[in-house]
Design a protein around this nucleic acid. Sequence first.
DNA 1: TTTAACCTTAACGTCAACGTCATGTTTTTG
DNA 2: CAAAAACATGACGTTGACGTTAAGGTTAAA
Lengths: 173, 173
Amino acid sequence: MNTSPAGEARPAAGGERLFGIGAAAERAGVSQRALRYYQQLGLITPQGRTPGGLRRYSQEDLARVARIRQLQTLLGLNLDEIALVLRSEDRMAEIRLAYHAERTTCAERRDLVRESLELQQELRSTVESKRLGIEGFLTDLDARIDRTRGLLEQMTAPAAPGPEPASRSVVGH
Amino acid sequence: MNTSPAGEARPAAGGERLFGIGAAAERAGVSQRALRYYQQLGLITPQGRTPGGLRRYSQEDLARVARIRQLQTLLGLNLDEIALVLRSEDRMAEIRLAYHAERTTCAERRDLVRESLELQQELRSTVESKRLGIEGFLTDLDARIDRTRGLLEQMTAPAAPGPEPASRSVVGH
DNA sequence: TTTAACCTTAACGTCAACGTCATGTTTTTG
DNA sequence: CAAAAACATGACGTTGACGTTAAGGTTAAA
């Protein structure tokens, strides 16, 4: 990671402020290399370039990077799978816009929407199962923690006043 | 992955049936290489070996492999982190047994228990945040799915009978 | 006992997701 | 405008988690 002093946002004329790759990387919490790599894989395209060829990232771009990271770390998808998801989402937005403008419903687009819906539902089911898994893991872990706490209590307070050796609930210290 | 015909369990004498690495791998849903690799990293040690040196896995071993996979795929931990978790769990079980046998509470062990508790709590917090993240992701995804469904409906049924163009709920097909 | 199936260790290969130069360009700052 | 800071492209390096031979031993079945 670079030790650059946090480059500023550059307002051009319209008002949408853009970031150089350094500032963008810092804000997104990834390396510059990662940003270039994502671009190479077609995951993002910085909103523009300076006349000299330097990348300029918009906040929208940054949000996209955040989404990439989310899909990566939360769901454990690899970058190819992420590309699929993002492309599908992009197509949806595009179609939505087109539909909003001209009210034409051509069958080709309908099929694309159907396709997107299926992918979303597939994604949903994998995420749901992941949620269940994590939930199960958590309750199990809580049980373990309870037991560990119990043991620790027993070890620290050896003289028990009450004559009940078979208790198993948390007292909420 | 091997195309071996699903080796059988080998009952020795006591009754605890053991599996060769092929059968173990198949049951655990990992490759033989993975099992050896886990062993190399100290994550598992097959319960025993044949006189000739072949690994024998118990069901307990298989459960351990399942836990490794769980920590890997569900939480996204790497094998080094998994090693830490498992070692801590092992120490806990050991101490629990020792405490059960001789009632002695030496300070050294108490500290280990405390240490384990802290690790468990740390793990819990990361898992909890992961759960929250996934939950958020899911509700967001559900909203997206809703919107996609809505668009699809609009595109398939263009002739609207009722004069209300601003509806936004699911009808539950 | 002789296979055939299964297993051993050792060593090199692979693949994703970047990290890390090297070298030259662009932009910003004083 | 000159130096400093930020960036571009290209190419090679790294790391984790295995995959894949290679060259043999072990075990179960016939």
